[in-house]
Design a binder for these strands. Structure first.
Lengths: 131, 131
DNA sequence: CCGAATCCACAAGGATACTG
DNA sequence: CAGTATCCTTGTGGATTCGG
């Protein structure tokens, strides 16, 4: 139980030390980027996201949405209709990210081939002579 | 065998659809951002990075460096001296990312408190009444 | 339609000890 | 100094099933 307190303290320290990298990890997580850009143009429904984000499973989409909602980047609106309808919309905080995220994806697309080739070269050098 | 071709085609499509997210995942990975910005000002040595990146373990730093080197974002130079000296330097491709990454960290710092509070609120609502 | 719950496989990551 | 090797814990994510 003092162990418990130690853990909490440690967590607080680490959070103060790099909240930035933690936040970045969230927004730049595997599915977060896709979700955010997919929600950029306006409110989207769950299944729209499911299709838009490509390889995401329902489970991971749900988890990602919860995380983003928890961080205040996404607002979740439930319409108590039948069948149920849920819409997700970016908050202003999240919208500020869109430009940056687009820069990131632009960069990735620009250097896609370069990076792919760099990997191939690297792998060759390591396969042939491991030293 | 047309099935086989279908699979290959699908894989190619998916690779074309999201090499971006894969690349982003690498550069925005847990430690990659820290390593890249730490190496921004010039060549850095291993232990410099170890101190600069904060919570990173030697193991993870090594793995991160290898990944970035493989992607052609980092150049590793070994000086065969004693004691050994290894320097890491960003490539031009990686340098193009610096502005974007800084925008990301700036955004994170600007909204650090907002996000922290959003989480607290969210957690309270979920703890007190789980539904 | 939009999830929650459970199970399971695997990968990420930390701790520690050892090397050249 | 700059790693490598090993063990072990935690997290990530798919598959499936169930419910409102």
């Amino acid at each position: 139980m003092s162990q418990r307190n130690m853990d909490v303290t440690r967590q607080l320290i680490e959070q103060e030390a790099c909240p930035v990298s933690e936040v970045i990890d969230h927004v730049a997580g595997k599915w977060s980027v896709g979700v955010i850009v997919a929600a950029a143009h306006g409110p989207v429904r769950f299944t729209e996201l499911e299709r838009a984000v490509n390889g995401v499973s329902r489970r991971m989409l749900t988890l990602t949405l919860r995380k983003l909602e928890r961080d205040g980047l996404l607002v979740r609106t439930v319409y108590p209709t039948v069948p149920p309808k849920v819409e997700y919309e970016l908050t202003d905080v999240a919208r500020e990210l869109l430009d940056t995220l687009r820069q990131l994806t632009d960069w990735a697309e620009r250097h896609r081939m370069t990076i792919t080739q760099a990997r191939a070269t690297y792998d060759l050098e390591n396969e042939s002579a491991a030293g």
